[in-house]
Design a protein around this nucleic acid. Structure first.
Lengths: 149, 149
DNA sequence: CTTGAAAGTTTGTCACG
DNA sequence: CGTGACAAACTTTCAAG
């Protein structure tokens, strides 16, 4: 396994807060020079601890304001890989998890409208391996943290 | 309301893919000069369409590999604002939504271990306004898209 | 109102100690 | 890991469409 020391964690913290901050600025925060910060960031990207950098957009303002959490129950024995393969082509699928309990998976859907959500659910239910779904529509988003400290 | 044209959408798409790409590179993709791209990005940040830029980290490699989706049932009538205020101080709460159906909210928890998850759940259940919780532990993460196109 | 070009400044990046 | 040097990018200003 690889080592991520406290300086790396502080660098990650800086980049999570603002992915476009300069290496020099990060260096000021963590007490390192800009090249040293860059070397660490490059290594974190290489090792996969950092997967990349992304922009945070307001989904509502782009017209993707409707969300749902959907329990998926499959028929027979299906592998997580099967489920993943079926969900991959659907752009409305934001995230999917295999879970404990009765359901085989939980799918996080995001759509442009209730109508769009409905069609996405129909497409989801049309997948052969899926037996039935239990949908929970998100009414409001109370909290949405970028990620852990 | 504000207008986000197709060029803005392509700029956003570029920044979602890589938040650290240069304005010049984005400009090559969308057919604009670097200053023009910067002006648009600044406006998108101002208007709130773009909320900011963040690093995507692999939670497992930082030792936050245990997740759960928790249905929260409250006692009596509580406002979404109340729930939010109680969840805000908990670092394990990644996201929280008010939802349709029997539950008052769904909370996305992330912890360093099953034990950590257990203590986080205990703290969650200790909140006065919360009556009971129904936990679903995430076994594996099938899909995790940064966001919508 | 938005764009592109040019200016000066800042930042990224590499070699070396 | 830090320093210094060079290249690349950012940011402002200004004139044109």
């Amino acid at each position: 396994m690889l080592r991520v020391d406290s300086i790396d964690q502080r660098i990650i913290s800086c980049l999570v807060t603002n992915a476009r901050s300069s290496f020099a600025d990060i260096g000021k925060d963590v007490g390192l020079s800009a090249p040293a910060v860059k070397r660490r960031v490059d290594k974190l990207l290489d090792t996969g601890v950092l997967r990349g950098f992304t922009a945070v957009v307001d989904p509502a303002q782009l017209g993707w304001g409707t969300e749902a959490l959907v329990e998926v129950h499959c028929r027979g024995n299906v592998t997580p890989h099967d489920i993943k393969a079926r969900l991959e082509p659907m752009p409305e699928v934001m995230a999917a998890y295999t879970v404990s309990g009765a359901a085989d998976a939980v799918v996080h859907l995001r759509a442009a409208s209730i109508h769009h959500l409905e069609t996405a659910l129909e497409r989801l239910r049309a997948v052969e391996i899926i037996d039935r779904t239990v949908s929970t529509v998100v009414l409001s988003r109370l909290l949405d943290r970028p990620q852990a400290p």
